[in-house]
């Protein structure tokens, strides 16, 4: 069934008008009933992940056709700021860019029973709302800890890398913050939360790390044995890939584990903002949450889960995120990062 939708969607994609920004994927989910409205969603989340949630939404709202466009976070930003593209909802994991959109006035306020029920840390004003909380984890090949206890903190990890450099040399993977927005966000937040990050970065830098610009190849290389350690990987992507693979393990470091909030906002240029809001409310509602958890594999916003796991630190959804988007700040941070990680 889902396949049929996708096929139809991908066919339709060719008919859509050209964009001024780069689109990775476009899909159309026709309304199951007689079409009364069209909802346009711009997202960084793959169609495949969101399709079950969209199907669930359409089961309730049978008259709504959904155009789902996927682009990377920079292109999403460009679409809204530069093109003023008319999407009714923007979903992105790039919290800092979403924050900038909201702060700079590109988002419309939306207030509903669902949004006001969100905890304070999961929304900003009435414009930016988180619907998933995803831990940023360490993944490793089990064999590399042979005879050793797996690290539980960055301090232990640093010590491990120092003590057994030969096991890790050339086989550590992490994001390149210069090329990856997510990598930059994780690195800056790590640096903000603890000083041990810089020590870890320096030690990693001495071990010839491999730099990636997305999560998937890192996971692939770990599974293929080319890597023994990948630092700062999105848990929600890694967990299903590593499930049932006993040679690998997923570690949530106990000193702090960054938790990314996947957020949504209704752009000011939306043609039908109410429709965008309706879809947002569905994402935040009980059936949407259930589908996000079971089908999309993303942990929905859950304050109790955070309380039970105190090491999970949601990245603060506040204008503090804007600081690292500052050009001077970015340049300074990346210089420091390069100095630490790229050693001659």
């Amino acid at each position: 069934m889902r396949g049929a939708f996708l096929a139809l969607g991908l066919m339709l994609a060719g008919l859509l008008p050209a964009h001024g920004f780069e689109v990775e994927e476009e899909a159309s989910f026709a309304a199951p009933g007689p079409e009364v409205a069209v909802l346009r969603v711009l997202s960084t989340t793959d169609t495949q992940i969101m399709a079950p949630v969209i199907a669930g939404f359409q089961a309730v709202n049978r008259g709504i056709t959904i155009h789902y466009t996927v682009a990377n976070s920079q292109q999403v930003q460009a679409a809204i700021v530069t093109d003023g593209a008319a999407y009714d909802l923007v979903i992105s994991s790039a919290m800092d860019l979403q924050m900038q959109l909201a702060n700079d006035g590109f988002a419309l306020p939306w207030q509903s029973e669902r949004t006001t029920a969100l905890p304070g840390w999961a929304r900003w004003q009435d414009t930016l709302f988180a619907f998933a909380q995803e831990p940023v984890v360490l993944i490793a090949a089990r064999s590399v800890f042979d005879g050793l206890a797996p690290p539980r903190t960055r301090r232990e990890l640093t010590a491990l890398l120092r003590d057994y450099p030969e096991r890790f040399r050339g086989r550590i993977g992490t994001y390149d913050p210069e090329r990856s927005g997510a990598g930059y966000l994780f690195a800056t937040q790590d640096a903000r939360l603890s000083d041990t990050f810089w020590r870890l970065a320096e030690v990693m830098g001495g071990l010839e790390p491999v730099l990636y610009d997305s999560t998937a190849p890192m996971i692939n290389d770990l599974k293929a044995g080319r890597l023994v350690l990948a630092y700062n990987v999105l848990g929600s992507y890694a967990a299903p890939r590593l499930a049932g693979d006993d040679s690998t393990m997923l570690i949530e470091l106990e000193d702090h584990t960054l938790t990314l909030l996947r957020t949504a906002l209704i752009p000011r240029a939306a043609r039908s903002p109410v429709l965008g809001g309706t879809f947002l409310d569905y994402l935040l509602g009980p059936s949407g949450r259930a589908l996000i958890a079971s089908e999309a594999g993303l942990p929905p916003i859950d304050e109790a889960a955070l309380a039970a796991q105190p090491h999970l630190r949601p990245i603060r959804l506040d204008p503090g995120l804007l600081v690292y988007l500052d050009a001077l700040k970015r340049r300074a941070f990346l210089e420091e990062w390069r100095a630490a990680l790229i050693q001659p």
């Binding site: 909201a102 900003w124 506040d318 503090g320 600081v323 500052d326 700040k329």
Partner: peptide, 18 residues
Amino acid sequence: DLPHEAFSILGSISQDRI
């Protein structure tokens, strides 16, 4: 070097645009 705290504190007092 913009201090993160300066913005974060503004954000924690009220949810205002900066």
